[in-house]
Amino acid sequence: MSVGVALALSDLPVVMQRHPEIIRRIYERGGEPEVRFMYDDRQPVLPVWKDGGLDLVWWGNARGRSRCLPRTGWTWKSTVEQGGWGGSTPGLVRIPAALGLEKGIWYRVRQGMHGLLVADEQGRDTVYMICEPSSHYYQVMTRSNRMPALLDEQI
């Protein structure tokens, strides 16, 4: 899986770049500002492509903000495919990312990850990162047995 994703600041729309929730997530790597979205943040959010634009939505339900959604930030691809989320009217979304983070290792992602967008009991958008069993390479690299389902890419 991935406990964090990063994007170059310049990849975000200008309006979003000025958002306080973005500004506090800006770091520098190699002289270039980037925005890091971490699951262990006090307010975990992820950028998702929604209705033709980029939006920030809650990343899972780690802190029990919702009483009806699972208290995690990830869901298995097989669960989605088998209709395990049927009752919550889910939608597949794209999570843009340049880098993923797992067990302290930042790895390059060409486009991003697949996400599942659901609404909590108050109608607030929440995204779960979709996972699949790790490839041999990913498993050795990160020592994790699940990896994010990447957009048009296999590592």
Partner: peptide, 14 residues
């Protein structure tokens, strides 16, 4: 995107 950043290329096993 990788220019100017610390980059490591991993072998096939990762």
């Amino acid at each position: 995107f990788l220019k100017g950043k610390a980059v490591g290329v991993l072998g096939n096993q990762g």
